[in-house]
Amino acid sequence: MKKFHGLAAITAASVLGAAVATADENAELVINGEIEITTRTNAPAHISDVLDEVLSGWRFRSDQTQEMEMDDFDNPGMLGVESALDTWSTADGSEGKSCADCHGEPEEMAGVKPVYPKWNEEAGEVRTLQMQVNDCRENRMGAEPWGYDKPVAIDMEALLASVSRGMPVNVAIDGPAQETWEQGKEMYYTRYGQLELSCANCHEDNYGNMIRADHLSQGQVNGFPTYRLKNTKLNGMHSRFKGCIRDTRAHTFSPGSDEFVALELYVASRGNGLSVEGPSVRN
C-alpha cells in the first residue's frame, strides 16, 4: 500500500473554486496507469426495460475532477484509506484483536465489496458492508460498533472498496434478498416531499441534463465512498441518499435505517457490471 500526503487535500480546495465545467463523457478511467475501471457498460437485465447502458458518475464530472481520480496521489479520498490502514492493524475491544488478526492483509478482502449489500443467513437480513464490519467489531473483537457513515466507518469502507477497484459490482437480488430489493425499488420510484420527485425523475429520466448548476448522473453507487470537493471529505451512500431526499423537501430517512439498506441494495444492483471505483472523486 502506498502512503499518501496532505498535498492531495490542498489540490482539492483549489479545484473547488473552478466554474462548472462540462464532462468529457468519452474519457476512460485507468487508475495509477494500471487499474482499468469500467465506467460504461450494458445495463443489467433487471433494468434493461428502462436503461440501455449504465454509467458511472465519474463520466459526468469535469476533466479536472476526473483527473483527480486517475492517480492515488491526487485522490484526497486515499487519505481516508491510509487512515483505515492504521485502524486495520490496531487491536481494539475486549478480545484485543485487530481486523488484521483474522483477515490478514487488506488485499485479501478483494472481492468482498462488489457483492455488498448481501443476505446474511444467520442474521436473516440484508447487510451493508458497514453493518458487517460492525458485526466483526461487536461479536469478534468485543468493541463498540461505529456510527453509521461516521468518518472511521467510511474510511474502512473506502479501504475495503480500494482493494476491489476494477472488479465488477455484482450484488444478488434474488433468493432471500429479493424482498429487500423490491422495497428499495419501490422507494426508487416514490415521489417524495413537497417537490414530489423520485430518484428516477432525476437519475433515470434526466441523467446528462443540467439541473441548475448540477450535471445529473445516473446516481450510481459504484464509486462510494466518494470524496466530494463540495464538503472536502469522504461521503457514505446513505448520507448521499439522505441529501437527495432532503432536497425534495421531504422528511428523509437516517443513515443505517432499514429503508436506506434496502435502497442501497436496489441502487447498487442498478450498477451491476460497473467497476468498484471507491474511493472516487466527485464535486
Partner: peptide, 24 residues
Amino acid sequence: SMMPSFYKTDGFIRLGKAYTGKAY
C-alpha cells in the same frame, strides 16, 4: 409531470419542513 406543483397543500409523501430533512 416532473414539474412540482407550486399551489398545492395536500397529497405529499413524507412531507418535510422545507429543506431541513425533518418532518413537517
